[in-house]
Design a protein around this nucleic acid. Sequence first.
DNA 1: TCGAATTATTTCAAGCATAAAGTTTCTTGG
DNA 2: CCAAGAAACTTTATGCTTGAAATAATTCGA
Lengths: 194, 194
Amino acid sequence: MEREAESRDMDDQVDDQVGDQAADDWLDGETKVVEAPAHHGDDVRLWLRLLTCSTLVENEVRRRLREEFDSTLPRFDLLAQLERAHDGMVLGELSRRMMVSAGNLTALVDRLVASGHVSRTTSPADRRVQIIALTDFGREWFDKAAERHGDWLGMLFADLPPRERASLMAALAKLKQSIRRGLDSANGAGSRRD
Amino acid sequence: MEREAESRDMDDQVDDQVGDQAADDWLDGETKVVEAPAHHGDDVRLWLRLLTCSTLVENEVRRRLREEFDSTLPRFDLLAQLERAHDGMVLGELSRRMMVSAGNLTALVDRLVASGHVSRTTSPADRRVQIIALTDFGREWFDKAAERHGDWLGMLFADLPPRERASLMAALAKLKQSIRRGLDSANGAGSRRD
DNA sequence: TCGAATTATTTCAAGCATAAAGTTTCTTGG
DNA sequence: CCAAGAAACTTTATGCTTGAAATAATTCGA
């Protein structure tokens, strides 16, 4: 078995000696010999490193939102999605973009309506549809928070050399493509529009 | 204000025309002129891209853990931490490694004790301390789950070209360093041992 | 047209996560 | 020795998150 429990924080101290031996255990074109338990050690390490970085950033952003704005990341995220949609956005679309379940949003939107940041309107065309939109107050609030949000990220990423930054952006784009393809092939090859 | 609400999913379609004009608004070595609201557009884009990737992976791993093992990511994470600690691990250490609050773990450990995956023992040396350890059953379970976990990641990352993979690993290491430094300088410069 | 299927959202139960306050136990300085 | 303080953990209140089931509205086919 693979030992993958390297503490998410120690991943750069861990000795990387897995050595992909699982080239391909095929005798001919049809018979697989050993059902080789390919280790995927590199994959796990990559994932843990990615996860560590996003957790660190996420926790800091959460902390700051709470301390400076007495708010939360989901609230900020939702307003951020709405910020460009000047005519509001349908709840389902919000759900897809934020990659969270619709059931989740019901309560979140409730709270944001209660605090005056967004409005919720039933679509006249289709009475099933809820349209969520920023209020003026919500927009003002978001503008302030977004500026600080940028500052925090700037601070966190300040020591990343430009070279690494560029290659990170490029590699993450490739990674995302790979993930999407992986999701498509594994699960139904249904149309991915999100 | 910066417009940063590019849907986390559309970030590679978005036209990147921010154009870092905020070089440095200094007249001499002492006086900052405009308190320039540096946009940090690149920082935000980098963050959103990172976040999208980890959310996609995380959601898929959660889904699979639930469907194939009727389990959750926090449960898996906790067992993964324990897997290497053959004499168990103190709850506080677990909390630090998993980057979650201790209060959170109390209930999570309760459930894992109830399901027979881990044991919880009060340290004889210090009766405040709780030692959490894998049971045999927990270890067997984890071994199976970890193998599948590796498979899933292998599938998701399969289409990532080796070149990008290498530069991603390297760049993420740098990124993590930058984040850590950012956290240290912003908040207290207290000793970071985690 | 009318009933079945589909779509959009809400409700529900359970689990995850946090910060702040509380409890128990240890440590330490006087 | 013994209080003050620190440390490890738990409790509490609140919010986020999910999947599954329920509800309501629309669409579509016969």
